[in-house]
Design a protein around this nucleic acid. Sequence first.
RNA 1: GGGUGAUUAGCUCAGUUGGUAGAGCGCUUCCUUUACACGGAAGAUGUCGGGAGUUCGAGCCUCUCAUCACCCACCA
Length: 1025
Amino acid sequence: MAMEKTFDANSAEPRIYQMWEDAGAFKAGANARDGASTYCIMLPPPNVTGHLHVGHAFNHTLMDILIRWKRMQGFDTLWQPGLDHAGIATQLMVEKDLAATGQPKRTEMGREKFLEKVWEWKASKGGMIEQQARRLGDSMDFSRSAFTMSGASSAPDTEKPGNFHDAVLQVFVKLYNDGKIYRGKRLVNWDPHFETAISDLEVENREVDGHMWHFKYPLANGATYEYVEKDEDGNVTLTETRDYISIATTRPETMLGDGAVAVHKDDERYAPIVGMLCEIPVGPKEQRRLIPIITDQYPDMTFGSGAVKITGAHDFNDYEVAKRAGLPMYALMDTKGAMRADGKPYVEEAATAQAIARGDQEFDEAMIAAMNMVPEEYRGLDRFDAREKVIADITAEGLAVMHDVTRTVKNDDGEKVDVTETVPMVENKKIMQPFGDRSNVVIEPALTDQWFVDTAQIVQPALDAVRNGETKIMPESGEKVYYHWLDNIEPWCISRQLWWGHQIPVWYGPNGLTVCAADRFEALDLASKKINSEQGLKDGDFTVRDISSLADYEHELDAAAYDSGLTKEQILLSCDEPQRRKDGKLCFGLYRDPDVLDTWFSSGLWPFGTLGWPAEDEAMKYFPGDVLITGQDILFFWVARMMMMSNAVLEENPFHTIYLHQLVRDAKGEKMSKTKGNVIDPLDMIDAYGADALRFSNAQMAALGGVLKISEDRIKGYRNFGTKLWNAFSFADHYEIPNAGDSAMPVATQTLNKWIIGEVGKTRVAVNAALETYRFNDAANTLYAFTWGKVCDWYLEFSKPILQGEDETAKLETQATLRWVLDQALIMLHPIMPFITEELWGTADSRAKMLVHADWPEYGAELVDADADAEMNWTINLIETVRSNRAQVHVPAGAKVPLVFTDLDAKGQAAWNNNHVLIQRLARIESLTRVDDLPKGCVTIPMPGGTFGLPLEGLIDVPSEITRLEKSMQKLGKELGGLRGRLNNPKFAASAPAEVLAETQANLALREEEEAQIKAAIARLAELG
RNA sequence: GGGUGAUUAGCUCAGUUGGUAGAGCGCUUCCUUUACACGGAAGAUGUCGGGAGUUCGAGCCUCUCAUCACCCACCA
């Protein structure tokens, strides 16, 4: 039957994929041999909102190659897929969807209702990427697809059951009980857009154009001092009497929260006023707050004025200074980044603050947090508007530091004149500003209560694992980056003020009662015990109840009130203070922490949360997994956290190898972005060239640590490669190679067949070596060169005369060999190009198993027959040289020419005898004749074992032929010089290894033979000329 | 400011413990020869970023300079 001209990827791929899935070919353990070891790869879970982009396509290809390879080898494989709930991204997307469809806002519908909407959204629109992954040919076990929010209490019954949520809570409780998680009021990165805290990693520092303003803080009670500036040599350069201290700031709006002005203790300029008070020059004059001038190690005497305003609640440096000095830290902004509008009137707050500053008033954290130091005129303003107003107000009052600026302007007559003005001193300068990586708004440091993982306590095993080689990071440069980050790790802020996520399993009650438990029943139980032991109440004397959601559900609150005999107000109050019920029992209310966990907290548990843990699931046999393949951009976010979490929870490393790759860029090496319009959609590439071509291209560019540039031309090239493979089978079809079932390795007697079998052996060795060391590019290139460069270019051509010939024995052997060789190519190419190979496997022959489960070969270099190898290489070499010479002198391609030789040793003679049919056919030689001397005007073909000649008198342009030969003599001369130089150097003989010495000597002999032959050829031509 | 990596053919990149440079694409010439024009044959192109050093020998190791890229970082 005639095959189609090319492989129709568009129609075949879905059909083949369906066939695999229907057969359960990708299920965990499919095709595993008895007693096989496990081999497990965890897919980095894409966001549930995600689409397949080139980065996914790239690393999926690598994972699939490994998994398919191992599956064919009979390992008990699992490629675990799944989705990440992606807190912020998903919540944002659903909120947008609500807005677009005219539904109530998140805050209007309330938490429970909103979560229902998110689950609905997930059911209808989420997980698109899993369908797209199928188009790539990913052999994941989709029946096990996991979700990081599975099993959450908000999940609808229709959601496939799962227990990832249990895993997350169990781990939280464990770490909490071990003292590795704590809660506290800290300065954290606050995202005013999403109104949540975020971790350090989610902040992107960008250089932006900023300004630095200089303001005067007047000294209290009109005090003055002599301000003296000196140069490096100690000479006085400026002396003036000042009644203020000059400070520089890029954030004037935070002045309202200043707790002090700090100078360096060695700064002589300010020594006279250290300990004095100065006035914050903003707000109503009567209430202006006085703050102390203190010393601290932080101010840099050489920067700005050397004096720094300290705003503990709005700057990370100032926070440290304020802590050291015990300064009050006044928070000025609300969750949206606007100036606070809550609290008491400014007059009252200011009075309290002044008392604190004078030392007349004790203060604590809670009291400070409640105080609003924003004057009425600024309340409610956005932080950036407030900044403008502060600047304007201070400048208007004459408290901005002024300086003279001279500029050139044209006067009325058009002449240029210099005008000098005194203007406020504002420096334009580049400043590093923190932005939220998702929201793109300026991050505001905010003093809030948050949960932290005390990473210092769990980091060590993760570091050790890599240091002692238990887990290897590839490329190695990744290890340095890993060490650097983990060695300097900061506490990890894990609480988020979002709704979509794992709600923190901690409940609070009266009198500081705090319990951490995996569910509410356990929490109530634990709370009872604590009340019992800590507050001395007997079991029968009190009840505890979780009232977390009662406020949202009026009817439940009613029911609770009816049950307990308390008023609704009393029930809500019972969290703060136990309430006495009608029956005399004390009622303790518990409410659950409303925050959710950082998405990466749950992703950090991916290596075992997907395998059923904490339940005793059979799938846990796949833990620890083998290799993790992911982008190096999430080394800290995810990889390091998995290392820490696996060790903290299970005391094992989650994998032995971490393969990190770079960002996939466009052909020019630029980042892909929608605005640049250079985004390549992998699905478009699949549509145009088939998944196999994209996969081969991915494998081919996967050089370790290399820059990844995806190019459509390349993909197209590998589509062509697929067609080449297809046509090799078409060739076999054309010559009616009989079906052999699953072909066995033939016993070859023909040199040609012995040779190609050896090439198959070499290829299998090289491919295995490449895949074992994650050199996907080497594997791809090896297979490409083998299939195209050996099989198609030579073996198929060589086999033609035999297949068309009369020697039945040789024909049968060659048919069997051809079939086997092509089958080996399919098997070895399958991990990279699964579709076309499966299709050819099925159409070429009848098979016991699908290719996806075919046995990966185990033969190796023992298949190489050195004599056959040498002979075929000699043959190929002769053909190439004849062809080259023919082309050089423009012999018509179709014309047959005679070939002569002078001397031929036994080996050469045998090689000729064995292969003359091939040589004559492929080099278009009509005859071979022995001559005593090469005729004049003959092109010389130096070969090991003898000299051949093409008698092409009349066709050759003698001078240009001589020039050509002389050119090669020059090249040869250089090489000979090098070889002789080395061999004549006694130190070389002494220090070079024996192999290298022998190789060099053999090489020299060969080159010398060649030199003699070329010399003779030139001499002959010279006679002619 | 600290760190990491890169610099090899016109382009994009390989080059695994030092042994004397390769691939794909592109380009030039020829060929529709019965698997394949998504093809075949032949061909051109490199002081391996500059400089110095170690070595018998360096694209690879050391130092230095230059350019580029990325990551991290609190200078008001």
